[in-house]
Amino acid sequence: MLSAVDLAAIWLTLKLATVTTAILLIVGTPIAWWLAGTRSRFKVLIGALVALPLVLPPSVIGFYLLITLGPHGPVGQLTQWLGWGILPFTFAGLVVASALYSLPFVVQPLQQAFEAIGPRPLEVAATLRASPWDSFFTVVVPLAKPGFITAAILGFAHTVGEFGVVLMIGGNIPEKTRVVSVQIYDHVEALEYAEAHTLAGGMLLFSFLVLLALYSRKGRNAWT
């Protein structure tokens, strides 16, 4: 029912979403922690920058990334100088673009979770001899667990669902940058409606299940 090309696209999509989510949790946690705790006047600025992908058309993000990461862009020149080549139209380029595109979906739930915890549990931990790093991993992370799970689910799902940015920065190279959403586009272009139906239906089901999982979590007690 699924062709080898379709399976390759699904595999690539899952790989991209997994790598992107892992990177976002590592990069997004300190950003969210800083945003939750800071009184800096740059908080608003950084918060707005992080939220930009929520409102910008994916083609705009893709366009600027293409220029920045391209052979004449500043990042492109850096990656060439480092001997990494240029990122657009590679899997690595897709990861960078996806991470930027899905950043707010990871940072915002984490920030909300950290803000809900507040400074008090950290003060309590400090009076019980826990160093800041110690208390972050033994108090903040467990208390923010629901936030981490929400962030991971949203980051993963949103990366699976992207199309515009991928098309701009990744092109449409089988097994390298051709993800499911692009593959559906190709099927429709080629009037292969049956194949498009299979993949599109799968995406619909996947997205629905993800949201179902997310909302049923929110109804539950956060600690259990």
Binding site: R120, P121, E123, T127, P142, L143, K145
Partner: peptide, 11 residues
């Protein structure tokens, strides 16, 4: 240090 309000770790 004993805080004014309950400060036990909920987890």
């Amino acid at each position: 240090y004993v805080f004014q309000e309950a400060s036990l770790f909920a987890h």
